Simulated scan of single mutants.
Amino acid sequence: MLFKIFIALILVLISLTSVRLGDKWPEGYQVYFAIYKDDLKTEKKLILREFLQEGKKYFLVINPHTLKTSIIEASEIIPPRITWQEVNLEFKNTPYIRLIDSSIKNSSNLQDAGITHVMPDQKGIDLTIDLCPSERPLDKRIFTSIIAEFEKNDHPVPLAISVSGLWMEKHQEDLNWLKKLIRENRITVEWINHSYHHKVSVNEPLKENFLLEKGTDINEEILDTERIMIKEGLIPSCMFRFPGLVSDKSLFEKVTTFGLLPIGTDAWLAKGQKVYDGSIVLIHGNGNEPLGVNDFLKLIRTEGPNVQAGDWLLFDLRKSLTNKIRR
């Protein structure tokens, strides 16, 4: 293990320059854990994935202290692969691994396992917007209302979007609209993996539903969602949201071995759950759940004076999570 780390730290030189990829599907996309530093003065980072695009090799990388992910082009020297167990040992004191360890504490929950709440030092919430497969168009009211209310004090406005592969596949125009808001610096987005197909049955019990359905290929559900994100020019985050918020202990722990942090909620608005400071709020932006959207719009109107005064905020989920674990 020490020899591997030594090789990774001393010999691996990878450019940290942001890369602009083409719009092709990544090839050879796979889980690939490895340690690297771009020089001897910077902190160690973790490679999560490796892939090829247009003949060049790239890595999806995470800073384990900030949870920020990025895509970099590989150098000629490829860092040696390590196991998930070795990742846990090497980065055990970082917010990244500490958060995953914390999330596992409620991994036996059939519904809403994972991180569900943060402890902020200000009033406000972390908003997560789920985009499950849907025939309906994107509910743009969410985004236009958020920008109108928060842009004065929080520019760009931080959001977390849990997106499924099929939604991206079927809603190119809506996705392009979101990407335009990002390019215009109106919003920033943490793109949370929400599985590719988001299977659901109205007849099966929860313990045999969603990703617990027999025959589900979890590798395909996770990795193909990341692949289409990259094809669309999006950077996959290190976060995962279970479809229907449904999982069992075995599935939960399997997802974490992909290097992913499961994110739940303590305030699914369409189900009437109350919002508190530090809540990870869930609404659906796919047009299927207008009740939750209406409740959220009512909430930000109610908090309007506090929002304008900068006393009620939409937090950056990535920063909220790292702040949570450091306390």
Rank of each mutant, 00 (worst) to 15 (best):
D224M: 10
E173S: 09
Q53C: 07
R241N: 09
K274C: 05
E190N: 10
F143A: 00
P290V: 05
V87W: 07
R241K: 15
E226I: 01
P305N: 11
E213P: 00
K254T: 15
L21K: 09
G165W: 09
E184V: 00
V19M: 11
E303V: 00
G272I: 12
Y32P: 03
I161C: 00
V293H: 05
Q308C: 00
D130W: 04
E213N: 05
G285K: 11
R49I: 01
N109L: 13
F315I: 02
I325C: 03
R241M: 13
L291D: 10
R186L: 11
I10R: 13
V61I: 11
T116G: 02
S15Y: 04
D316P: 01
L9I: 05
G215T: 06
H197C: 07
T69Y: 09
K319P: 00
G285Q: 11
G304N: 13
I182R: 14
L299A: 01
F6G: 01
C238T: 13
G244D: 13
E149R: 15
G292V: 02
L60F: 05
D126Q: 12
D38W: 13
I182F: 08
K274M: 09
S102V: 00
A160M: 06
C238I: 14
N88E: 15
I77S: 08
F315S: 07
D139R: 06
D248S: 10
D121L: 14
L166V: 13
D23Y: 11
E232K: 14
Y36S: 02
E190M: 00
S320F: 09
S108V: 05
N106V: 05
P95Y: 12
I5A: 11
P79L: 09
N219K: 13
P158L: 03
D101N: 15
G259Y: 08
I100Y: 08
N193S: 00
K56Q: 13
T17H: 04
Y36E: 03
M1C: 02
P80Q: 14
D101Q: 14
R227D: 02
D266P: 10
V275M: 08
S237V: 02
P305Y: 12
A267S: 15
L211M: 15
E27S: 12
R227V: 03
R301D: 09
W191R: 04
L159F: 05
L314R: 01
I218R: 03
